[in-house]
């Protein structure tokens, strides 16, 4: 009797553990998705005004500007429909560059600028040695992009 009860408790604990882990992770996933906004949504004021949320998109070319303190940077993020100005103080990840995807976490100021606490860079799916990437040049790369996204909505405007 006692051994069986012990087993029951152990099995119950294991199941509760798995269920708990699942719920936790799923809710985290949920909140992550619901706190993500595209620049268009931000421009349409669908974002929360009193909470931290995330903005994602591409860094607009020629908008990255470093301020005098050397640590603060300004840049603009776009989803090719709307643009959100971002200010960030800190070290940018290695893969951060103009024209590439980023996710910024922070809150929007009264001045309409998104003050980021954290800026994450997305990576591209192409893995090429520099020489190959140089010789391939844009024409071929564009061909691949068109090919792989043929049936999907336009992925990005990299040019």
């Amino acid at each position: 009797m006692k051994a069986r009860q012990k087993r029951l408790v152990l099995v119950g604990l294991a199941l509760v553990g798995v269920a708990g882990a699942t719920t936790l992770a799923l809710s985290a996933l949920q909140s992550n998705i619901s706190y993500f906004f595209s620049p268009s949504q931000v421009m349409a004021s669908e974002h929360p005004t009193d909470a931290v949320f995330r903005v994602g998109g591409l860094v607009v070319k020629d908008t990255l500007a470093r301020q005098e303190d050397g640590l603060t940077v300004h840049f603009e993020v776009t989803d090719n429909a709307a643009v959100v100005p971002v200010s960030y103080t800190g070290i940018l990840p290695d893969l951060f560059s103009e024209g590439q995807g980023v996710v910024a976490k922070g809150r929007i100021g009264d001045d309409g600028v998104f003050y980021a606490e954290e800026v994450l860079a997305k990576h591209d799916e192409s893995y090429m040695p520099p020489e190959v990437a140089d010789t391939l040049q844009t024409a071929h790369v564009d061909g691949i992009v068109e090919q792989t996204t043929g049936t999907e909505p336009p992925r990005s405007m990299t040019q």
């Binding site: 290695d94 990576h123 893995y127 020489e131 990437a133 140089d134």
Partner: peptide, 9 residues
């Protein structure tokens, strides 16, 4: 190091 649009070190 990588080059192109994914210049990883």
């Amino acid at each position: 190091q990588l080059g192109g649009s994914n210049p990883q070190k």
